[in-house]
């Protein structure tokens, strides 16, 4: 049993219902979940299984319909819009499938965008060095490859020294060689920063690099595996 102070996330009976007219879609049907500090968790599952909804609620982007989510001592399900914004700002780093970089800012500036509003940020150069992009710091997103853009997004996510790093399909838009580089960057920053990392993916091959693997189906967690031996991203067969 892990030490209670070691728990970063705790979700109990989490549900989410989307209503559109008379139609009700149950995206989450009662999720119980815990994540420890520094843990690297891969979330698998088919489209529509609820994994993105789960990540969005945990990340403070969306609200649950029922149940509770705790981040450390904060009950996320009780926070208002402004407090959720503050939560994202102070504690969460996000990485998305389509990078969501600001096209009018260079790589370095995209990272600075976050360090300017963070409480205990690292230096922007440092964050870029962690993902191996110190040489491309002055390029605009349009001048970078997809993999490079995603690594800038990772640098931007970790530059604030977040407690949690949430990645939704970070390799979804990338080919395998590039995807491996991105995963390497993720595992490396997970070690270096010690942030609890949740990675959503379609790609079952990625499971081997995680501490723990969770599988979603039909709004529920249907399987949970703990890896005793973690592989390096470069050892993963794609």
């Amino acid at each position: 049993m892990p030490d209670a102070s070691d728990i970063v996330f705790r979700a109990t009976g989490l549900t989410k219902v989307y209503r559109s007219g008379a139609l009700e879609v149950h995206a989450l049907r009662g999720i119980d979940f815990q994540a420890r500090k520094g843990e690297f968790i891969v979330i698998l599952g088919p489209s529509g299984s609820g994994k993105s909804t789960f990540l969005n609620i945990v990340g403070g982007l969306d609200r649950a319909s029922g149940g509770q989510v705790w981040f450390e001592e904060h009950q996320l399900t009780a926070l208002d819009e402004g407090q959720l914004t503050q939560y994202r700002r102070d504690h969460v780093g996000f990485v998305f499938q389509f990078y969501n970089l600001v096209p009018s800012l260079t790589a370095h500036e995209n990272v600075q965008l976050v360090t300017e509003i963070a409480r205990h940020p690292m230096r922007a150069d440092e964050a870029l060095a962690l993902v191996g992009l110190q040489d491309r710091a002055n390029h605009f997103p349009a001048q970078l490859s997809g993999g490079e853009q995603q690594r800038v997004a990772i640098a931007r996510a970790i530059a604030k020294n977040p407690e949690v790093l949430l990645c939704d399909e970070p390799t979804g838009a990338l080919d395998s060689a590039t995807g491996i580089k991105v995963l390497e960057a993720l595992t490396q920053v997970n070690r270096a920063v010690g942030a609890t990392t949740l990675v959503i993916t379609h790609n079952a091959a990625i499971r081997d690099i995680a501490d723990r693997v969770i599988r979603f189906a039909d709004g529920r967690i249907v399987e949970e595996t703990v890896n005793t031996v973690k592989k390096q991203p470069s050892e993963v067969a794609w």
């Binding site: 982007l61 994202r88 996000f94 969501n100 965008l113 976050v114 509003i117």
Partner: peptide, 16 residues
């Protein structure tokens, strides 16, 4: 719109 929504995700307030 896309950039501004991304900023919101990153923790920028509505006002910012």
């Amino acid at each position: 719109g896309r950039e501004l929504a991304s900023l919101r995700v990153l923790g920028f307030t509505n006002r910012e």
